[in-house]
Write a protein that binds this DNA or RNA. Structure first.
Lengths: 261, 261
DNA sequence: CGACTAGTTGAGGCCAGTCAATGTTGGTGG
DNA sequence: CCACCAACATTGACTGGCCTCAACTAGTCG
């Protein structure tokens, strides 16, 4: 069930770090059931009662893929065949406009499922790139379809996955449309913080996996602006910055920034 | 099947034109099948072969609702019970941030289906408001669910609906994150133009249903900026403007604006 | 007619972009 | 181990696009 043809995309025009490199496909790691996965609570929080459906659920993951930093999981224009659940590491998704403009639309952490925009199109409209060494589970669409048809709970999960992607994109628009630079960055940091916390990591100390340029692209800012803001936040005692190592010192202060018009 | 409780939302804080007004529910117009609908090609372009599914398909629309300009179809926080297909008129969808910020996230024309963000949440996260006298079909979620379970084509249609909502939101983000004011407005006009064309209306002459402020909110600009840009586009011979009546004179010129860095 | 909303246009200020120089970090090979 | 290089990051000076504030006009409705 490999993708039979790798569609031609323009020769690598990415913000950073995406050297042209052969696409790595299944590394032959044996699949594993979601049932025993430690990320299940975040990734697939459903119960499947019906025995037949349960069998399908256990076989949802066809394989695992290992990615090194900079590896491309899927490209825009490539045929949609599966969703991917991040098990270890992190990925960015990058949207490409017709005119070559591009934007980091999302930063995805373990337990998140990516690739949903392709689900109605048969084609991916975005690109996913690993930000560090990363491992993802491959959920082939036929299996998703089959399980969705049989099990109501899973179908609900699928709806939720899609609608929360809509909501996420929308809140990004809201941010880009209404916030000023400092608010965007504060909002970004707070969002990251709470997502790390949800996964049992520190909510105050973490390492950014994106460059200033990628963060800027995500927030609709230039890298210099991002850099300046980090410095300013540090001066004001809101955070401590050491390259990509971040420490949130004053969460309340950051939240106040958001409230300010 | 009416919504049993109307959740309390903050007392009307919208960009414009949304006077507090009693929510109008079903006006008692008899439902009608999608099969004979002139918008079906745009709205529900599927064939349902299986006879049982066909019965469900014919009964998809429970009722129609008529809205006058400014009427609210659903509010953020309100329970999600149905999708709505626009038959006549147009609606805007408005997203509300925690801090009171709001943004027009979409302008919806006949044949479009709105409310999909609520599909996984049981709750609407946005507000939909009629921009003119408007009529919508009510597609109760139970009926959608039932048909989706039975018919593969319809299920695909549902996926497509959701994923294209993701793509639409994403391209809005892309616009807000990467384009300058004149490009945003040009892009907005060209998008509207092609959507009118798709519906058999003139692609060059149309009436904006939104105020400058609403357009600005959608594009992440202030109303003065929108107004100035309309004037400038008119000066440059790209368009003619007469209040809300727009005539696109130089489509190519507008497209050139997009390409320019 | 007055009150109100929508739209236009001008003057000035500020936030973020641009251009440029310099510093820092991490990986590679001698 | 260190030298070197490239990618990443920081900081400064300047610019300009969009926002803000404000005045004025046009149309609408009671």
């Amino acid at each position: 069930m490999h993708t039979s043809a790798i569609p031609t995309t323009s020769p690598e025009r990415t913000v950073t770090a995406t050297r042209p490199r052969p696409i790595l496909r299944d590394v032959g790691r044996e699949a594993q059931s979601c049932l025993g996965c430690s990320l299940r609570r975040i990734c697939m929080p459903i119960d499947v009662a019906d025995p037949e459906a349960k069998v399908l659920f256990e076989k949802l993951v066809a394989s695992r893929i290992r990615l090194r930093k900079g590896d491309v999981l899927f490209r825009a224009g490539e045929r949609f065949t599966a969703l991917y659940a991040i098990r270890v590491g992190s990925c960015k998704t990058v949207a490409l406009a017709d005119d070559g403009d591009e934007q980091v639309t999302g930063l995805h952490l373990p337990g998140e499922i990516i690739g949903v925009e392709g689900i109605g199109n048969d084609v991916h409209v975005a690109q996913a790139v690993a930000l560090e060494d990363t491992e993802v589970c491959v959920l082939p669409f036929e299996r998703i379809e089959a399980l969705a048809q049989r099990d109501t709970g899973f179908r609900r999960r699928l709806y939720r996955l899609l609608s929360s992607a809509i909501v996420r994109e929308r809140s990004l628009s809201l941010m880009l449309g209404t916030m000023r630079a400092e608010q965007r960055l504060a909002s970004f940091l707070l969002d990251l913080s709470s997502r790390y916390q949800m996964r049992g990591y520190s909510s105050t100390d973490f390492v950014l996996r994106m460059t200033r340029e990628e963060i800027g692209s995500h927030l609709g800012l230039k890298l210099e602006t991002v850099s300046r803001l980090f410095s300013r936040f540090a001066e004001e005692g809101l955070i401590e910055v050491q390259g990509r190592v971040i420490k949130l010192c004053d969460r309340i202060g950051l939240q106040h920034l958001l409230a300010a018009s």
